[in-house]
Amino acid sequence: MQTRSLVLIALFTAIIVVLGLIPPIMLGFFPVPIHAQSLGALLAGVVLGARGGTLSVLLLLVLVAIGLPVLAGGRGGLAVFVGPTAGYLFGHLPAAFIAGWVADQVSKRQLNGWKIFGGFFLGAVLGVVVQHVFGVLWLILYVGLAPSDALIGDLVFVPGDLVKAAIAAYAGQFIAQNFGARTRVA
């Protein structure tokens, strides 16, 4: 791996960490606070691509595992990996990979504004869906919740995560148009 790729990945992990530290962003038309950390995982995929985004999220999970308080609310340590919501945490990995893979395909083609946004949004939504599948499966198989209960608990978070996918796609489109492919990790 080139040193530049390594630096891009580490810098993006730092961005994800900071997104977890800042207060939730309030959206004007949406009266819900958006917790920015899971937004960070999608952004990592959209901006860095499949390989870079996945490695960036993996680096975040390594930081969590070694006990640094890098998750939202200053959480960290091995305990979060055995908690009831750990499925969503692991789910960040495939989410970043899928969002990144689709974004890679989109940015290979010469597309204009709205098509880039559409492609990025599709990738981010697929990533969110897979992350939620991981989260729900963890709740069912590991925690032992009834599938219907796990699904209902999960659905509460779907609208917020879809808004995050839209934000990630919008910001990703800006960055792709103004910064080009220089942010993609080869």
């Binding site: 580490a10 992990t13 730092a14 960490v17 070694i66 640094l68």
Partner: peptide
């Protein structure tokens, strides 16, 4: 990589 992240969190 871990060192880089710790170094750059305050910067970000």
């Amino acid at each position: 990589a871990i060192g880089l992240v710790i170094r750059f969190v305050p910067e970000v």
